[in-house]
Amino acid sequence: MKRIALFPGSFDPFTKGHEDIVLRGLRVFDEIVIGIGRNASKARYFPLDQMIRLIEGAFRDYPAVRVISYDGLTAHVARDVGAKFLLRGLRNTTDFEYENGISQVNRYIYEDVETVFLITSPHLAPISSSIIRDLHRYGQKIDEFLPYKFEESVNP
């Protein structure tokens, strides 16, 4: 049976820290589905279609990685894509406290799903999507934090 993991998040933007989790996750899973959740009550900074295209490009040499966007509950999406695992990265104890609660609820909704946490590589731990958005918002270059060449022609 194929070990499929869903790696859910807003990925606004997808960072080198996220890439690190996916690449290391490929040592554990046969397939990783990067799921970009859409939240109607939260406006994105970087356009969803742009982020999908950039992430797909970053993983073009990895046929075991695919990218989807979704509405609804992550546990339902995991079940729908055949994932028995949710892959999550942890940078610190604050991330753990937040992710632990979510993992419990996901398991309640879809009892066959297990959440697997990978600790972010130390040199990538300070990187967060919110910090990158702030840097970009105030005119700073962000390419060194991203696993792709950022398309300045498509701005938020």
Rank of each mutant, 00 (worst) to 15 (best):
E111G: 12
L135N: 05
H18V: 00
M1F: 11
N92Q: 02
F150T: 09
E151T: 09
S41M: 09
T74I: 02
I102K: 03
P126Q: 04
A83W: 13
Q50Y: 14
T120H: 10
V67T: 10
F85W: 15
P8L: 00
A40R: 11
G101V: 02
I36Q: 08
R137C: 03
F96S: 00
V81C: 07
V22C: 06
Y108R: 06
F29H: 11
V113N: 00
K2R: 15
I4Q: 09
R3M: 09
K84G: 15
Q104L: 15
G89L: 04
R66F: 11
V105D: 06
R44A: 08
Y138A: 00
F59K: 05
R27W: 14
K2W: 10
D61I: 01
K141Q: 11
G25S: 12
T94M: 05
R3D: 08
N100M: 12
I4K: 09
V67H: 13
A58F: 07
L73D: 08
D20V: 01
F85K: 03
N155H: 12
F85Q: 03
F117D: 00
R27T: 15
H136S: 07
V105K: 03
R44C: 06
R38A: 07
K16D: 05
E19C: 05
V113P: 03
E152G: 11
R38G: 08
D134N: 09
V81D: 08
E31S: 12
S128I: 04
N100G: 06
P126T: 08
K16Q: 09
I34C: 08
Y62F: 10
L48G: 11
L90F: 14
L54D: 06
R38Y: 13
V65K: 06
I21S: 01
N155G: 12
E31M: 07
P147A: 02
T93P: 13
R44D: 10
D71I: 05
E144T: 10
E111M: 02
Q50A: 08
I109V: 14
D71P: 06
Y45N: 00
H76T: 07
Y45D: 02
H18T: 00
S41K: 10
R38P: 04
D80F: 07
D80I: 02
A75I: 01
R44M: 06
I109A: 07
V33L: 01
S121C: 04
F145T: 01
I52E: 10
A64K: 13
H123C: 02
P8R: 05
D95I: 05
S121F: 03
G57M: 03
V28R: 15
T15Y: 01
F29K: 05
K149N: 07
G57Q: 02
H136W: 09
N106W: 12
D12K: 08
F14R: 00
L86R: 13
A43H: 06
K2G: 14
R88Q: 10
F7A: 04
I4S: 10
L48I: 13
S41W: 13
L48Q: 15
V28Y: 15
A43S: 11
H76G: 07
G139T: 12
A83C: 08
D20M: 00
L90R: 13
V33G: 07
T115L: 06
P147N: 03
S121I: 01
R38M: 11
A125H: 06
E144H: 11
I36L: 09
